[in-house]
Design a protein around this nucleic acid. Structure first.
Lengths: 80, 80, 80, 80
DNA sequence: TCAGATAAAATCGCGC
DNA sequence: GCGCGATTTTATCTGA
């Protein structure tokens, strides 16, 4: 940034957009907590649930990374 | 937890609710990043923006806590 | 911490141990950078190398998490 | 990179060197954590310790940079 | 109170 | 050489 003519009103708009989004994010975090609490109340083990979710996420990420490396390999072959 | 009669189909439903919420959360995180990127493109300094947001959040929390303590005082007065 | 009689010389010793370890860590980080640079000079694609390393690390972590969740399941069964 | 004649065995050697170094790095990270834990057990505040370490690092960097600029000045003088 | 999960900040390497 | 994106590191927060 090198100009001091930046529009402060514009900055304020950016800040408020971010703050609104952060509030939404916090609400979702709370929702997640509630679902865990509800599951726990139904008799499920939260720790196990977290592990399952973690493993499922790792599967997805692994698949994604494998696709990425495949593309990198193909791109490298294209350069041969 | 002491029963193994828990309903696996129900567990699956909980997991999927959580995963959906986590996805929404990630989407919002991305939105926030985008707003920062846009602000940066407009010439604002992201690091400074983060500081401002952090300070504003602290202000809000401080005000909230002050209101809470005021209510506590008022409640205590009511009991006099 | 509630005592002010903490031994400042002892604190200094802790700080120095940490600082020495951090220095060792930095040295290793530099070594890693050098190996990447050497590999790059030999004609390898650093991005692909990083992806391979990342995938291999994910494999190891996945295996570890699977063992952990197995133990959690066994522990849960023990409580039936 | 334009050749596909890269030696795969050589690549493997690079990857293993890096992975070994990363493991050493992780070990040191764990050592650092342990020292912090030990210090905490002795009654020190980890957060404050981190701040002190950070400040000391900044001091060292500042001094280093000042020396660098001094050398630059001296070199410039030598060219007069 | 503590470890473990999550989010934020700093750092680094790559491409233009 | 510099900004951008990815990775790593630090700090905060939550739950046991």
């Amino acid at each position: 940034m090198s100009s001091n003519s930046v529009d402060a009103g514009h900055l304020r708009a950016f800040l408020e957009r971010i703050e609104r989004l952060e509030e939404e994010k916090r609400a979702i975090t709370d929702d997640i907590k509630e679902v865990f609490a509800e599951a726990k109340g139904t008799g499920y083990d939260v720790k196990i649930m977290r592990k399952i979710i973690s493993l499922r996420r790792m599967d997805r990420e692994k698949r994604r990374e494998e696709e990425e490396i495949l593309e990198l390999y193909l791109a490298a072959l294209g350069e041969v």
